[in-house]
Simulated scan of single mutants.
Amino acid sequence: MAANVQKTSSLGKVLVTGGCGFLGHHIVKLIVERHPATQVSVLDLRTELNRNSNTNVSYHNCDITSVGAVQQIFSKIQPDVVIHTAGANLIAKNEVHYKVNVDGTKNLLAAAEKTGVKVFVYTSSASVIYNPKTELINADESWPLVMGKDQPEYYTHTKAIAEKAVLEANRGETGMLTCAIRPAGIFGEGDVQTLPKMVSAYQKGQNKFQVGSNNNLFDFSYVGNIAHGHLLAVQALLHTQKMMPTIPLDTEKVDGEAFFITNGQPVYFWDFARAVYHEAGDTLPLSSVWKMSQGLMYLIGAILEWLFWILGKTPNLTRQQVKYSCMTRYYSIKKAEKRLGYQPIVNLEEGVRRGVKYILQEEQKGKDKKDQ
């Protein structure tokens, strides 16, 4: 079904929550490029950053944890489509994670149903099936959600609860169609987590070290591909909505479903890091890299966390980073390929080149300002 979805100049009125964030603003950019007649409304806590200059894009400050504020915005905009990317910062406190990720999502769903939204696409996380005892090897959507005491990351626990709520809202009283996109390891222009830390590590001379034996495959996903996956989901749901009350075959169904979206190019973790180092200027031969044991680096990470906690800062090496750099974690995108017609539009090498180039350009801009 997805392969037959027609590209249109307009998706109607689209509301993007978190549209000034890393992923959100790339989604807005792609909508403007592909569907130029679409009326895009960006809803974010603060809308000063990453604004799109297109006249069809409007910006609205809104706290999604406020029921009244959300309902007021929805009543004003009357969106046809909601793409919900907003979420709590990874380092936020647990109560903030729950309030934003769970309560905020439920507020949006309630407002969407009340105002007759046709399509609701939620940005979940590939981590919702993660548990520390099982490596993720070509994991697909049949793997169960991991929540509660079995989920070591509270942030991920709340993302799983929110995903469940979104999918359960599919084909409710108003007929709204929903689905969830599960990205893995997003990076690219405007990235604030993955590439900046790796570029910083290179600039500090930490490219001389490697944790573990580098035999663990990992999924990194270029942000443009994740945005592409979201828009394919919107188109597929709009197509299904036009066909209602007909329900697609289970093998074609998009509504009520979750989809892993990645680059489809799992790579050894430190090979990716070295590709980033190389784009940042690294010429160190592989023979000069020191291989440090995971156990030793985990201990060092714990000590650094304690010392930096005293100083009120965050170290460049943490136990979580050590754990992530040594685990196998990649996913199957076959379901997205078949039902959404998804194929990555930017390969891993080009994505790294674009992302690192952006970081270096921003650093240069900062230096130029200081010199003025």
Rank of each mutant, 00 (worst) to 15 (best):
L348I: 04
E362R: 13
S9W: 03
P132G: 03
S124P: 11
Q206R: 15
A165G: 07
W290N: 03
L237G: 06
R353T: 02
A184E: 08
N170L: 08
E153D: 11
L217A: 02
T262V: 10
Y298I: 01
A110E: 07
H26G: 02
N131Q: 07
S58F: 11
D44R: 00
Y59W: 06
Y330I: 09
E48L: 15
V322Y: 01
G87Y: 09
N54F: 09
P152D: 14
E163C: 03
Y122I: 05
K7D: 05
V211M: 00
A280C: 11
G188K: 02
S58W: 05
S53M: 02
L30S: 00
H230N: 15
F74V: 04
L232W: 00
K367L: 15
R51M: 14
N316Q: 04
S66Q: 10
D219S: 14
K118G: 04
Q206G: 06
S10G: 07
L284D: 11
D80F: 06
I31K: 02
K367E: 14
K367G: 11
V254L: 08
P245S: 15
I137M: 04
T240S: 08
V82E: 13
S53Q: 14
F209N: 00
R274Y: 15
S288F: 06
L348Q: 09
G19P: 01
A184R: 07
A273Y: 07
Y222F: 03
Q210W: 06
V102Q: 07
V121T: 00
I83A: 03
V32N: 08
L23F: 12
Q71I: 01
K204P: 06
Q203L: 10
P196L: 12
K164L: 09
Q372W: 06
K93R: 04
N54A: 11
D250A: 10
A180S: 15
N4K: 06
Q321N: 12
R319A: 13
D80L: 09
D103I: 11
P266I: 10
K357Y: 00
S127G: 13
D103N: 15
T85I: 07
F218C: 10
A275M: 12
H97D: 02
E153S: 13
I161F: 00
E168S: 09
G185E: 03
P344T: 11
L299P: 04
Q151V: 04
F218G: 08
G172T: 15
L30W: 02
G87Q: 12
Q372V: 09
A180N: 15
G301F: 01
Q39I: 01
I186H: 11
L231V: 10
L108K: 05
W306N: 05
K208G: 10
L167E: 03
K133F: 12
L43G: 11
